[in-house]
Design a protein around this nucleic acid. Structure first.
Lengths: 149, 149
DNA sequence: CTTGACACCGTACTATTATACGGAGTGTAG
DNA sequence: CTACACTCCGTATAATAGTACGGTGTCAAG
């Protein structure tokens, strides 16, 4: 039977061997047991999928800690369902917020592209305006007390 | 006239003073000139907007380097329009890819939440499957040569 | 049975993104 | 005019996410 060593697994997932080991140390993926008689570990296909998930999620702005939380939703069909549900709902809200923000950015970029070759009136569309609404979850800005007495 | 010191600007943007200085050093925001007779710098409102944009974009998975690229699209109505347009189109594709990925994750989370309280058949929906399609731009996985000779 | 590529493992180094510290200067409320 | 908070600037330290290195062990092709 074909044996998947760490190098093969890393290759299939598109990362380096050291990265796989790093994720193991962080508890993001499980290290397969070392064969009883010594020798090389055999990685299951699932590890490859997990690593790919991790990389994709990173590109979407999740930290490894957050990704661990996402993966934990997946991992335990045995654990308290209501708890998983609640955490999933939190993540869902986060995801929806990101989608909304990206959609604003998409619109801004589209406007920018549209405005570009037509006339010189490029000044009209500011990328910065794109993400105006939808505050991040933490660290609210201090209120600007209006000079309107 | 009201003067916005670095602390005020940082507060309005929801970051610390040190972070503002850091962004200045990175060239993400411009440091206002020091008043001729010494004293404190006066930050324009635009700086606050830029900082907020930076934080939002970071949550969407852009690095500071990428954010600098995004901001540069905004900055120069004078520069070569075709170039700006091209870069904007690249960013747009990136944004659309992210949206698609997040949409998959959203669906997976919704399925997870829906599957949760009904029956114990939670096993059915794997978060990991959510991001299957849509490879990241770089680092393609090595091809798994099928054992089908 | 040797040789070369890779696994194993611990430790060290790097890049990115901040945060903290310390000493001197500045602005303002009382 | 003094106390206190805040700015300024340079340097130091930290957290996150890897990446590299070096010595030893293992496997498999020739």
């Amino acid at each position: 039977m074909k044996m998947m060593t760490i190098g093969k697994a890393a290759g299939k997932a598109g990362v380096g061997v050291e990265t796989v080991r790093f994720y193991e140390r962080q508890g993001l993926i499980e290290q397969p047991p070392k064969p009883i008689n010594g020798g090389y570990r055999d990685y299951p296909e699932e590890t490859v999928l997990r690593i790919r998930f991790i990389r994709q999620a990173q590109e979407l702005g999740f930290s490894l800690r957050e990704i661990a939380e996402l993966l934990s939703l997946n991992a335990d069909p045995s654990t308290d369902c209501a708890d998983v549900r609640e955490r999933a709902q939190g993540k869902l809200m986060e995801v929806e917020r990101k989608i909304a923000q990206l959609d604003r950015m998409r619109l801004a970029l589209e406007r920018l592209i549209a405005a570009c070759p037509g006339q010189g009136a490029l000044k009209a569309c500011s990328i910065i305006e794109a993400l105006k609404g939808g505050e991040g979850v933490a660290a609210k800005p201090t209120q600007d007390k209006e000079t309107t007495p």
